[in-house]
Design a protein around this nucleic acid. Structure first.
Length: 851
RNA sequence: GCCCGAGUGGCGGAAUUGGUAGACGCAGCGGAUUCAAAAUCCGCCGCCGCAAGGCUUGCCGGUUCGAGUCCGGCCUCGGGUACCA
């Protein structure tokens, strides 16, 4: 009997698939299509286990859908622009383009041995000029459609390197290379008007019924629709050209609890006051000495400065409130100014206590009417509370009712109006970096901002750039910037900002439907292949990437690049968990941990040691595989050692796909053993006498396996499909059926495992005389009559605890079941002669005797 | 800080969605085979207890004949937080 040698078998079948052109997708109006897409990878240079898991899941779906008769589109590409290429250029002196294309070539070589059913003829990278040129064409269309504009926005500025930093490059408020405290600096930047679509993007979430509820909820909260009141506080004396401060509040009902008015350090008034107030200038400068990320802003120590200005309360002109500048007020949300109500907002309360500002209760709890001390009283808006002398005359009412009453009052008295506000901000796409899609506009001294002519697209990145100094190489390129104005032809300068890489990934799914077209998309192809029937990727993309894509598909429709039906591009979404691994560390001479990769470590019964030196190793928590902690297992090594099927089988086993999976060497070994066992069984069956004794139990197990595996794949419960395949293999191994019957069962097993382990499935299929390729065989159907049992086991509980069970015909009447139950020994024992108080019979499920 | 998740034997997990908690797999233990080992095959395997029985789904409380599942309050870990992708 030959051992199964994946190293020989896997390339053989991959070649066979390629020669038979099994996976290329061709438009065929007569066949139903199915578009499976996994989020395309960033070409870091190595595939990691997360990729293996993601692409195996997609492949299982693609192969299964193909077997059930669909014309499947399953493409692959590269999300190839981004900062790591520029970092490599700075660190290693390589060109970002060379680095990226080399990585793509390396990763493709690592991916191909996985045996994925991908149509490689559709492959592209977002850094291909053919791709980003089409993106530029759409940008111009969107400009003309009014979906694009420019405005000032703040960035992280490294004052030493004189460069813009990404949020991730700001560590504890300092630049990651220079170590200098970063500053917030305003630049004129390009924006997409995504906020115009806030209401529509929110409403349409309800239609995404095949998306995880959690993702829809996260998007809903991100869009953040809220109703509130907009009104102004009049300054007692005008200052720096301002006579009032506009505020937006979602809690106008608490207006009598106002204790101060707060404005953002970036508020126009705050900026205007800097000119002749050094204290304010210093305070604002201090506030700007921090990163721009919301997490940083929100977790920073709350600080404020009294401007000395006063405003009048709108409900009582004699009541004057101080105006403070506070570092936690965002200029991007609402009007950049608030009124603070410390009694009913914890952050305002902390601030008020810190600076000795008044705390005024406006309502009290009905059950425990205590005034606020250290904890703000913030009940849900639906909860009824007792109002203290409310200006609308309410006494006991909910927050919602009080808010509406306040808005009505303000509108009738004319001092404020009810407005709907969204948290969602417009999408800033300007990046002051080289390795991205150039924004195709020209700045002309005479004509202003002019889009490039479409026939001049793509605006290609210049090849000759240097990364020896920080900052955007496009800015200091000697000739690339100089270009004639597309309108008047006189000398002008190109825009040097490139686009956010999220733009690239907001339409690649559409490009896959016509990847080599001379236009962004081709209507007939988009019409046939869109939408993506199943999209699969990490939960980390739940908000930004998916929301941007939803917006971009709408924008593409408005500019004639996608049909109406594609404005929600992803019909179904699945978010997978991460691949994790234990961490191993020793302590270095400086007291800091030194991390070790799993292949440097030997696991022994009494602990882990370094293979090389025998030094004991600390086994740390199981976390996401990452280079910095060295807890990575290279899929290439696993594929080399065990074969792709083992890696695929392992990542589909055990852990539910939406949850994190921990890679363990033992698990990989076990997967390999199981596949070896299947091959032994196949060899045994192939060489056995062809007796055809039928085993009814095996027939039933076959039907059950087909049913369970089908449901497992349909429901994205691959771990359950795998468990059913284990059970089926055990059933075949134990069956007393003749070789003919077991051969049939084994062929069914090959079909059922084909989506997960396609190479071994082909080998088994061939060894047992299956016709053609199992990758092209139709999906097996379960004999429904074998799936039903006519008797069931009914557990009997006494007071909710299982005490006994009876086996009864499935359709036995309640009365008969009750009789049997009361005659049951265990029940009699537990009743001890007492009458049952109640007897609950759930037909076909359970019986509960209540004593 | 805010938004969204997750938590079940030694381990990964299953549980027909309110009805037998622990399917399937790993590890472990016992046996068979072998000169021996590896590999393989068979069996056992939540915890406490000799047993009867009791306990058990992160913690506390509630609803219910019945809760891993529903409700309220916590704890821990993870994802996102708009320039990481």
């Amino acid at each position: 009997m030959s051992r199964y040698n994946a190293r020989v078998v896997e390339p053989k079948w991959q070649k066979a698939w390629e020669e038979a052109d099994v996976f290329s997708a061709k438009r065929d109006e007569n066949r139903p299509k199915y578009y499976v897409l996994e989020m395309f990878p960033y070409p870091s240079g190595r595939i990691h286990m997360g990729h293996v898991r993601n692409y195996t899941m997609g492949d299982v779906v693609a192969r299964y859908k193909k077997a059930t008769g669909f014309n499947v589109l399953h493409p692959m590409g590269w999300d190839a622009f981004g900062m790591p290429a520029e970092n490599a250029a700075m660190d290693k002196g390589v060109h970002p383009g060379d680095w990226t294309y080399q990585n793509i070539s390396d990763m493709r070589a690592q991916l191909k041995p996985m045996g994925l059913s991908i149509d490689w003829s559709r492959e592209f990278a977002t850094c291909d000029p053919e791709y980003y040129g089409q993106q530029q064409a759409m940008f111009i269309d969107m400009m003309e459609r009014g979906l694009v504009y420019r405005k000032e926005a703040v960035v992280n500025w490294d004052p030493v390197d004189m460069t813009v930093l990404a949020n991730e490059q700001v560590i504890d408020g300092k630049g990651w290379r220079s170590g200098a405290p970063v500053e917030r600096r305003a630049l004129t930047q390009w924006f997409f008007r995504i906020s115009d679509f806030a209401e529509e993007l929110l409403d349409a979430l309800d239609g995404l019924t095949n998306w995880p509820e959690k993702v829809r909820l996260m998007q809903k909260n991100w869009i953040g629709k809220s109703r509130g009141l907009q009104f102004a506080f009049d300054l007692t004396t005008p200052a720096a050209g301002h006579d009032r401060i506009e505020v937006f509040t979602t809690r106008p009902d608490t207006l009598m609890g106002a204790s101060f008015v707060g404005i953002s350090p970036d508020h126009p008034l705050a900026r205007a006051l800097e000119a002749d107030n050094p204290d304010i200038a210093a305070f604002n400068a201090e506030c700007r000495r921090m990163g721009t990320s919301e997490a940083d802003l929100e977790t920073a120590e709350k600080k404020g400065l009294d401007t000395g200005l006063k405003v009048r309360h709108p409900l009582n002109p004699d009541w004057e409130l101080p105006v403070w500048i506070a570092n936690f007020i965002l200029m991007d949300y609402g009007t950049g100014a608030i009124f603070a109500c410390p009694a009913h907002d914890q952050r305002d309360l902390d601030f008020a206590r810190k600076y000795g500002l008044p705390v005024i209760d406006t309502f009290l709890a009905l059950d425990d009417p205590q005034p606020v001390t250290d904890t703000a009283f913030v009940p849900p808006k639906e909860q009824k509370v007792k109002w203290i002398d409310h200006f609308t005359g309410l006494d006991i009412a909910t927050g919602d009712e009080a808010i509406e009453a306040t808005i009505r009052l303000a509108e009738s008295q004319g001092w404020g109006k009810g407005v709907t506000q969204y948290r969602l901000r417009d999408w800033g796409i300007s990046r002051q970096r080289y390795w991205g899609c150039p924004i195709p506009v020209v700045h002309c001294p005479d004509c202003g901002v002019v889009p490039e002519k479409k026939e001049n697209l793509p605006v290609e990145l210049p090849r000759d750039v240097s990364f020896d100094k920080p900052g955007n190489p496009l800015d200091r390129h000697p000739t690339w910037r100089d270009t004639p104005c597309p309108k008047c032809g006189r000398p002008a300068r190109r825009e040097t900002d490139t686009m956010d890489t999220f733009v690239d990934s907001s339409w690649y799914y559409a490009r896959f439907t016509a990847p080599h077209a001379k236009t962004p998309t081709v209507m007939e192809d988009a019409e046939y292949w869109m939408n993506v029937d199943q999209y699969i990727g990490g939960i980390e993309h739940a908000i930004l990437h998916l929301l941007y894509s939803r917006f971009f598909a709408r924008a593409m429709h408005l500019t004639g690049h996608l049909p109406k039906k594609a404005i929600e591009p992803f019909d179904a979404l699945f978010t997978q968990g991460m691949v994790t691994h234990e961490t191993y560390s020793t302590t270095g001479p400086n007291g800091l941990p030194v991390w070790h990769s799993p292949d440097e470590v030997e696991l022994r019964e009494n602990g882990a040691v370094l293979r090389a030196t025998g030094e004991p190793v600390e086994v740390g928590p199981v976390i996401k595989m990452s280079k910095s902690k060295k807890n990575v297992v290279d899929p290439a090594d696993i594929i080399d050692q065990y074969g792709a099927d083992t890696a695929r089988w392992f990542v589909m086993s055990d852990s539910p796909p939406e949850r994190d999976v921990e890679w363990t060497a033992a698990g990989a070994e076990a997967a390999w053993k199981h596949l070896q066992r299947l091959w032994r069984m196949t060899s045994e069956i192939a060489s056995a006498d062809a007796s055809d004794t039928v085993d009814p139990a095996l027939e039933r197990e076959t039907a059950r396996a087909i049913d369970a595996v089908t449901r497992g794949i349909e429901d994205f419960a691959f771990n359950k499909a795998v468990a059913a395949l284990y059970a089926f293999a055990n059933a075949i191994a134990r069956s007393g059926a003749g070789a003919g019957a077991r051969r049939r069962a084994m062929l069914t097993l090959a079909q059922l495992m084909q989506p997960m382990t396609p190479h071994l499935a082909e080998e088994i299929w061939q060894a047992l005389g299956g016709e053609g390729l199992v990758s092209q065989a139709p999906w097996p159907k379960a004999d429904a009559s074998l799936l039903v049992d006519d008797t069931v086991t009914l557990p009997i509980q006494v007071n909710g605890k299982r005490r006994s069970e009876i086996r009864v015909p499935k359709d036995m009447s309640k009365e008969e079941v009750e009789k049997l139950v009361l005659a049951d020994d265990a029940v009699i024992r537990f009743l001890k002669g007492r009458e049952p108080r109640k007897l609950i019979v759930v037909p076909g499920r359970i019986v509960n005797v209540v004593v």
